[in-house]
């Protein structure tokens, strides 16, 4: 059965997370390959997630915290 845009849009949120199971996934992928409008939306959502991820992953734990935590663990032994 052919998937409509409306159905695809509802599932795109899951699809962006690339975590939903086949055969839905195959159907959505097929719809995206045939429908420019949904494909644009999908790419936009995916890029947005990438922006949020890359901004967040820049933050690193201070080295001093690592040292102090390992110190406390060894102390507690």
């Amino acid at each position: 059965m052919k998937m409509t845009c409306l159905e695809a849009v509802k599932r795109l949120v899951d699809y962006v997370h690339s975590d939903i199971e086949t055969p839905d996934k195959d159907q959505i992928a097929k719809h995206l390959s045939e429908c420019n409008s949904c494909c644009d939306r999908f790419e936009f959502e995916e890029k947005l997630v990438q922006v949020v991820r890359s901004v967040s992953q820049k933050e690193k734990c201070p080295a001093s915290l690592k040292t102090s935590i390992m110190g406390k663990i060894k102390e507690a032994l």
């Binding site: 967040s56 933050e59 690193k60 734990c61 915290l65 690592k66 390992m70 663990i73 060894k74």
Partner: peptide
Amino acid sequence: IASFEETAIPNMDSLYR
């Protein structure tokens, strides 16, 4: 400790952010 340092500590950046 060695096992903890190998498996748990590398996740500290994720937990901190």
